[in-house]
Design a protein around this nucleic acid. Structure first.
Lengths: 294, 294
DNA sequence: TTTGATTTGTTCGTATGTATC
DNA sequence: GGATACATACGAACAAATCAA
């Protein structure tokens, strides 16, 4: 798949741009390990961690080479030669980029590090951490969420295709039906959030979509535990689905202002409801669920 | 306050909560001689990477123990025993948490991993990555920025103390004065952005503050290169500082609505101006500056 | 100021599971 | 199924940074 020397001018496997490497290994420390001549690099003092420097270098190369998601990067062995660092150091640099969501590691032949597409997971994690330390409350989240959702619905108006409308209708139907057991009620809550993320996907502003998904992610993990516990959720769920239906109706006739007003009202109601349940509780006890990736 | 049970309920160095550890490896104490059978853990097929699992475990312990920034975590050696993993694996787990900004490593006696306070840098980096891959435009950013800043100024109204007002006045004065050389013009641009971040700091919503700082960070790195190049910036800067002065005046008389309206107008103007310069240019060539940490 | 202890940072070598061919 | 290529994991050791005596 990757081995095409055709018109694609992209630097394939292992090429990348500058092969700096080999940084002044001259001053090798005299103390040689038992393995005889091991030309140990001098991890110069004063600098940042070597792994971070290398990570930054790899990052720069990804950008300057204009690599797209799915493209392969040089395998570990080549990087060891290029940078003149040990395997562990290279692996740490790769780990940094992996945690940042820039690359993914793939085992087996033709494996190695590959450029990962953008994913909101890293931003979600970072903002979750922030919420944990900064004692963010339900009020704070909804203040932000309201602003984002209102802007989003205005931006999405007139840009929603038929398929998306159908998905929205289906989600409304799920959350509108009366829930009998807890599992079903939980599914309803999920559908309510999914309504907002599906709507956000329709907006052309990817940054806005990201923010809304992050906020939704924080809220679901915050309310997941007792999403089905409270009896209030029954009435509330009904109210929610009515708002959702009204918003979709406004969007169908491409009335951005009405949709925005409804969304604002919807957020205000949801804010009031959740504050009734949780009060001024900070999210410090809910953030940072382990959450497996991918 | 999650900690009950007496005065100093915080688990000091190395205590943490559950000492699960010791999975399998019954003969742990008998340090295996170099040539002996290494009781290798089975990295089971379906499972995730061991380092990520351990990282999640450490993360959970930080939360359940209610650790605050500055608190110490067990040193590597203890973790090796607790988790029954090799040093490289432990270090990879620690690296993951470090990249996520949750911990910092400290060398020397009394060193080890310590809980790092919340920092917007990780969120900034994650969102920058996202912008790089998703081809976010100036329009997208300003759509979001406008919503955030308007909400922020409403939230900050009536909560600004005298010292903050003075700082804001000083920043306005800097950007209002006519710029002679490029360096000065660059300083003006910085002051303009700083106006918004200082204002955001006054808002009680930390999450909103974070978002605004992240957006500002993306914009400065996007416009830093040619912030002083364009002649237009002269007039524009003048207009900006007038808006800033008007907003501050509205905030002084605690007129949230007027301040919000002015901010909205300000954002619209800024949006128009930048789009005039950059057009529909995506940010993919500006994001991801290496940026050294701390 | 120097010395020594503690802990992370870096390196080597090696073994094993896993995915592709 | 076997061979190959690759990441994942283990262990031991030295280097550098930091702090305390």
């Amino acid at each position: 798949m990757t081995d095409d020397s055709g018109p694609t001018a992209k630097p394939e496997r292992g090429a990348m741009s500058g092969a700096t490497g080999d940084r002044g290994k001259g001053s090798g420390t005299s103390s040689a390990p038992p393995g005889a001549t091991t030309p140990r690099r001098t991890p110069r003092h004063g600098a940042r961690k070597r792994s971070s420097i290398i990570a930054g270098e790899i990052r720069s190369r990804i950008i300057t080479d204009g690599l797209d998601p799915g493209d392969s990067l040089p395998i570990e062995k080549l990087m060891i030669e290029d940078f003149g660092a040990s395997r562990a150091t290279i692996r740490e640099a790769l780990k940094e980029l992996e945690v940042q969501g820039l690359i993914r590691m793939k085992t087996g032949p033709n494996g190695g590090p590959i450029v990962a597409g953008s994913s909101p997971l890293e931003a979600l994690q970072a903002i979750r951490n922030f919420c944990y330390f900064e004692k963010v409350t339900i009020h704070d989240i909804y203040e932000l969420r309201s602003a984002l959702e209102v802007q989003m619905v205005q931006s999405a108006a007139g840009r929603i295709d038929a398929a998306t409308f159908e998905r929205l209708d289906a989600l409304i139907e799920i959350s509108a039906a009366p829930a009998s057991d807890e599992a079903e009620r939980r599914r309803q809550r999920e559908a309510e959030f999914e309504f907002h993320t599906v709507l956000a996907e329709a907006a052309p502003n990817r940054l806005l979509t990201l923010m809304i998904e992050v906020i939704a992610g924080i809220l679901v993990s915050a309310t997941a535990r007792d999403s089905a516990r409270h009896q209030m959720h029954g009435d509330w769920s009904c109210e929610n689905s009515r708002y959702h239906a009204d918003i979709v109706a406004a969007l169908r006739r491409e009335d951005a202002e009405a949709a925005a007003a409804l969304m604002h009202e919807h957020m205000t109601q949801a804010h009031r409801h959740l504050e009734l349940i949780y009060g001024d509780l900070t999210l410090e006890d809910i953030a940072l669920t382990p959450r497996e990736r991918d």
